[in-house]
Design a protein around this nucleic acid. Structure first.
Lengths: 150, 150
DNA sequence: TTCTTTAATCGGAATGGTTCCTATTTAGAG
DNA sequence: CTCTAAATAGGAACCATTCCGATTAAAGAA
């Protein structure tokens, strides 16, 4: 089941609107990068988007794809899913725990909650696959960064 | 508040035990890499661990740190926190949603749950910082990969 | 203890994803 | 249509991570 035509339409309209209000030029490249995402069910990475868009814009550069994705994210048109800046973070704590991630400094802190350890998984998930582990991620400013900001 | 001496001791013992049963040599380097993590409150990245361990083992190479971290993870002594292989994943779906991540192919799929949108955050978290967003991550084999495995 | 085997290490080169740089192009305002 | 600031193309640079080949050393055997 792909994203519905109506939903894609709605997203493209929001894209056009956001470009206008945000003072962004609606370039061919920008449009195609967003279109590739507006119709995607999975979460493609930059390289996948690049290859897809190149079918319509053969001369597009990787740099443009990366730059455009960053711009779209800034504008709230697109969401980037990653725990933190690419670098793996290690932890010798093997008990079931959850993460608080500071959006400013990227530091990751553990916290515990028996309630969160045993979340109610919606039935719809069983269509995606068999769940082997669960984790909650909280994001926000850590106390340290909040202090620095003042 | 650092990790308690008793807890560090317990972890080092488990490390020694796991090396023995797992047929791993307890090299000086291996030991120091694990020790750096056993006493860490935050989740250091490989470079941070490298710099820390170098104080005790000046000639250690980055490769050894990376290799050792991978080995420790295989042995279940250490946990690596990251959504998936470093690459950012993009998504034009801006509604509050959660992620199912396939541990084999790395593909990320959205799912929805009003219940999970509004999780009970334990009080202890307020000491870490102000929560701005929440998300649940489920990991497991997706239906596709499960099929391929057979 | 010494010997032997083989896993583990070192250090530098290679890789791969992402960002930077600069000359060139182009969307959109006037 | 013209002008200009914003955006792009393409390749170099960057940085985290992995690979590789020569060397070292842990741990079991003698």
């Amino acid at each position: 089941m792909a994203v519905s035509k109506a939903e894609i339409e709605r997203r493209m309209k929001r894209f056009a609107e956001t470009c206008r209000t945000g003072g962004l030029k609606t370039t061919h490249q920008r449009m195609e990068v967003f279109r590739a995402l507006a119709g995607a069910e999975t979460h493609p990475d930059a390289e996948t988007i690049y290859r897809h868009v190149r079918r319509r814009v053969p001369a597009i550069s990787r740099d443009t794809v990366y730059r455009t994705l960053a711009t779209l994210e800034e504008q709230g048109l697109v969401h980037k899913a990653e725990i933190v800046s690419g670098r793996g973070r290690y932890d010798a704590n093997m008990e079931h725990h959850h993460h608080f991630i500071c959006t400013a400094c990227g530091r990751v802190r553990d916290f515990y909650s028996p309630t969160l350890d045993d979340l109610p998984i919606p039935k719809s998930v069983s269509a995606l696959g068999r769940v082997e582990s669960t984790q909650v991620q909280l994001r926000g400013l850590c106390t340290n960064c909040a202090k620095d900001k003042r």
